[in-house]
């Protein structure tokens, strides 16, 4: 609908339709088709999960025969089963705590560190930057055994606090690396000008640099939240009581069983794991686009 309006507008603007205009219209039409294809490619599989989570298992098993895409009798039974039969509610709570805490810690400490690394020429900082990069590239798998020793010594094995520390420390290098690239992009002159005008460095940072770096901090936050929310390896090895498990590691136990208890219930689990993330992201996405559109446009 909006597509044809757009084309009509383009057409109505000019009195005479020349070849260039036709070309332009065709080009725009193709661009719109491509845009729709890109969106479908991205969301169709996920839409299928949502749809299937609302179907009773009898409909799911009949799909190959009757090819009914939409649920004939939509139901929330799968969700009820999920919370009643499994410990899903508990895993949901644990993952929420981990992802939120880690995001806040990484954005806060990461912005501090990134600012420090880009603005002050102190001996040893360059070395630390390199070390940070190395820490950041660490395959998580290499850390499993040593971290187990370390957390054991600290009495933090099988504890959500221990996992929180591990998450924050292993996500910080990326946070610093990404934030650094944003801080480097902010001209030093902006800050210097504020300081010449009588601002302290803190004021310059808070009033001038921070607003400029906000899109970077939001991008970092979105990233850290999503990777921590679905983290599997550390959680599956560093936590072993079923009551302390997080979402990915918990749901993975369904997949490692020899038979699938109920596909509908698994799809409901998929929706539940994705939903808070998607809502959170949509809320922040507006800031992200605002940041992309304005403020960031500098020569």
């Amino acid at each position: 609908m909006t597509i044809s309006q757009d084309i009509l507008e383009t057409v109505n603007k000019k009195q005479s339709i020349d070849v260039a205009l036709i070309w332009k219209t065709i080009r725009r039409f193709i661009l719109y088709i491509l845009m729709i294809l890109a969106v479908l490619w991205s969301v169709l599989p996920l839409a299928w999960v949502l749809i299937s989570s609302l179907k009773p298992d009898t409909e799911t098993y009949a799909f190959a025969q009757d090819q009914n895409i939409l649920p004939q009798e939509p139901t929330f039974d799968n969700y009820q089963t999920l919370f009643k039969v499994t410990r899903f509610g508990l895993w949901l709570r644990n993952s929420t705590l981990m992802a939120t805490g880690t995001t806040l810690a990484v954005v806060f400490f990461g912005a501090m560190a990134a600012y420090s690394l880009t603005r002050f020429k102190i001996p040893g900082f360059e070395l630390f930057s390199r070390l940070t990069l190395i820490a950041y590239m660490m395959p998580p798998i290499i850390l499993i055994v040593p971290l187990f020793f370390l957390l054991f010594r600290l009495g933090l094995v099988n504890s959500l606090w221990g996992l929180f520390l591990v998450y924050t420390a292993t996500r910080l290098p990326f946070g610093i690396w990404l934030l650094r690239s944003y801080f480097i992009g902010i001209p030093q002159e902006l800050e210097d000008a504020a300081m010449v005008d009588g601002a302290t460095r803190f004021q310059a940072f808070y009033r001038v640099i921070l607003p400029q770096a906000l899109p970077g901090m939001i991008s970092t936050g979105i990233f850290v939240f999503s990777v921590t929310w679905h983290e599997f390896l550390f959680a599956s090895i560093l936590l072993f009581s079923p009551s302390k498990q997080t979402l990915s590691a918990g749901v993975a136990t369904f997949l490692s069983e020899d038979w699938i208890y109920s596909w509908g219930m698994l799809m409901a689990a998929g929706v539940m794991i994705s939903l808070p993330l998607v809502l959170f992201y949509m809320f922040l996405q507006r800031y992200l686009i605002a940041g992309w559109g304005g403020g960031g446009l500098k020569g």
Binding site: A38, S42, P45, V49, F232, W263, A269, I273
Partner: peptide, 18 residues
């Protein structure tokens, strides 16, 4: 178009297995 990136690996494994 950013949706697949947001969705956790466990959900994607569920999706494609299904």
């Amino acid at each position: 178009v950013l949706f697949p990136y947001l969705v956790p690996a466990i959900v994607i494994a569920l999706t494609w297995r299904f």
